[in-house]
Design a protein around this nucleic acid. Sequence first.
DNA 1: TAGATTGTTAATCGATTAACAATC
DNA 2: TAGATTGTTAATCGATTAACAATC
Lengths: 209, 209
Amino acid sequence: MAGYVSEAVIKRLPAYYRHLKELEKEGIHQISSQGLGNRMHLTASQIRQDINCFGGFGRQGYGYSVSGLREHIGHILGVDRTHRMIIVGAGNIGRAVALSDSFPANGFETVAIFDNDETKIGMTVGSLTVQDVAELKRYLDENTVDIAVLAVPVSHAQRMVEVLCERGVKGFWNFAPLDLKVPEGTSVVNVHLDEGLEILSFRMLRELA
Amino acid sequence: MAGYVSEAVIKRLPAYYRHLKELEKEGIHQISSQGLGNRMHLTASQIRQDINCFGGFGRQGYGYSVSGLREHIGHILGVDRTHRMIIVGAGNIGRAVALSDSFPANGFETVAIFDNDETKIGMTVGSLTVQDVAELKRYLDENTVDIAVLAVPVSHAQRMVEVLCERGVKGFWNFAPLDLKVPEGTSVVNVHLDEGLEILSFRMLRELA
DNA sequence: TAGATTGTTAATCGATTAACAATC
DNA sequence: TAGATTGTTAATCGATTAACAATC
């Protein structure tokens, strides 16, 4: 089955998953690498190479089962399980993540939200109450947490990560604009919103030229 | 100066910019490709290649001027100018973007916010009032808009984009989980938050194995 | 000048694309 | 069976790394 999978392939997996969900919704049961490639703006060859990183899932002369492949990739991504998330930082971004219902719909459930600001502690965010970050260690000792969403200022981010790592949190979704240092075996995905805007600005300038 | 610049280089530019800002803040005036490479976890060779896409900015035997290079890259990215943004969709994400002060701090100013939901129209978001999306066309005719932030449901996204493109908006910061179709000359940066979580889930699973 | 470090060319590595035998 | 399409190997392309002459 799956040996080494390159970062390039990993980054395409969610797009495969999304397109397959769309196809399912459209009532399409079967698709060839050519057909999926047209839709995703990838070559048929690349589609076949990518999928084959995880084992042969197609049938010669037929193509791929849309629902079969969607389930398969969903399983590879781990979206067929529930992930318990806590949010650290109840600012604009922290609250937006807490209030969104697209994350729980994909199995990513927010179970707690923390802040150090007295004006925010006790505030209601959806079905949750903002807890004092001073309670965080105790909370981690008493509850299972898969993922921590870091929505704190840069100045606090690394310190918070250390507390969380020490108590066994293995996954970070980081919205603070810095590169976190984490121990071996810990995963980080950065969402550097500012950087996206900078790239957009760059591309727009280049179009002008 | 700059001929073709690969996507790989473009995606690194914001990180260069961020690290150079940090170095400036630390009072460091000069840095070699080796020094910057250590800091950014890149090879010295790659740093020199990247920077040279935009012309020779270093001095042999010395390295690079931190502030000079920061200004240079800032100019390439276009963050030395102001960008007028409107937000389409006053949900959790739209409001979070509108309320953040890190975007205006980088020259990305939100000048208006729209929604189609009667319960949201008229609502105050920071210094702005949510306008009826029915007013959008008129607004675009009367005002300059550089970037539209798409924070609407998938079902509305493509339709909104078409209205905006027709009225000359050339840049989109898209938070809806779909691939927008835009005319030649229009730039799109996607922020697919769900996909980030899926990749995080995948990486965490792989660490377990 | 001597040492350090760039800018740039050449070598390597990895990812994408093409080709095709296997087979549904 | 004949046609279609996969899985997989080989070829190509592009990005990263190494090397080194130029020069501050």
